[in-house]
């Protein structure tokens, strides 16, 4: 039987790891829920941001938060440009899967051409810092990630609920024609939302560079679990994405502690299936 310390530590690790799932799910959930575009290239953009953070950090010794100041706006611009293409070619929900998958593959190849397929690791002196709280250790970097994810998720939730632009976006997602009749320019708002989604990929990428191992093929490593998070958290719901991420992260981690680490991938999809069968009102 695992000790209370082990369970507590696993729970802390899992919730913090879930912060990354939530952060990655945030942009995807907005795009899917409010624009009806399933943007698979979100993962590739996050990894592009991670590689840029790595490059700026290792070659030019730029601290990651300064890198983020450059990378996030650049990602926003890429998101806007990407939406221009979607708009021009009138891409629908199903076609977006194929087109953004192709875009992700092109980005993967481009990353491999420049940075090679070899593993890259951005070593920083703070990457292994922890805060000791009783018998538990709280990794500082993951904690910061969770706080950033929390601020972004909550801020986005408030923006969608309390501002005219947010309400307009939600109205357009419900019924674009009726929203247009009330003077909402859905197309312009979609550009903004697409840019924000890609910007969130940039934020996630900065943390991926600091926490994870970089290799071009890793782009696809997060896909399954983040999709589960997006669905559990409900499409277009930023707070739902974050909480679902933490739920999945904690479940995986507890499975690793109590059962076997090999069970972890099964857990996220088991939770997804269980929730779909349960079919709660909030889903």
């Amino acid at each position: 039987m695992p000790s209370a310390t082990l369970l507590g530590q696993a729970l802390i690790s899992g919730v913090l790891a879930g912060g990354m799932y939530g952060l990655l799910a945030l942009g995807l959930s907005l795009s899917w829920g409010l624009l009806r575009l399933v943007n698979l290239s979100h993962f590739a953009l996050a990894f592009l941001a991670a590689y840029l953070t790595y490059e700026l950090g290792t070659t030019y010794h730029v601290e990651p938060w300064w890198s983020a100041m450059l990378i996030v706006p650049a990602m926003f611009a890429i998101g806007v440009a990407q939406h221009w293409l979607f708009d021009k070619f009138k891409v629908n929900e199903l076609a977006s899967l194929l087109i953004t998958f192709s875009f992700a593959v092109v980005l993967e190849v481009a990353i491999q051409l420049y940075w090679t397929a070899d593993y890259r690791r951005f070593e920083t002196h703070y990457s292994t810092l922890s805060i000791k709280a009783g018998p538990f250790y709280i990794p500082v970097l993951e904690l910061v990630l969770c706080l950033v994810a929390g601020v972004l998720a909550w801020g986005t939730w408030l923006w969608l609920r309390r501002t005219y632009v947010g309400k307009a976006l939600r109205a357009s997602a419900e019924d674009a024609d009726i929203a247009a009749a009330y003077g909402i320019d859905h197309k312009k708002l979609a550009y903004l939302l697409s840019g924000i989604g890609a910007g969130y990929a940039g934020v996630a990428g900065t943390f991926i560079a600091l926490i994870a191992t970089l290799a071009p093929a890793q782009i696809w490593a997060w896909l399954g679990v983040v999709f589960a998070v997006v669905i559990i958290g409900r499409l277009g719901n930023p707070l739902g994405a974050l909480f679902a991420g933490m739920l999945i992260g904690a479940s995986e981690s507890l499975a690793m502690a109590v059962l076997s680490p090999a069970w972890a991938p099964v857990v996220s999809f088991s939770v997804l299936i269980a929730i779909l069968l349960w079919d709660p009102d909030w889903l």
Partner: peptide, 20 residues
């Protein structure tokens, strides 16, 4: 004796077991 999936992303819980 612990097995993890190839490509495992988070080693926090595994590390806690190794430490214990």
């Amino acid at each position: 004796y612990l097995e993890y999936e190839s490509g495992n992303r988070d080693f926090g819980a595994i590390a806690a077991r190794v430490k214990e």
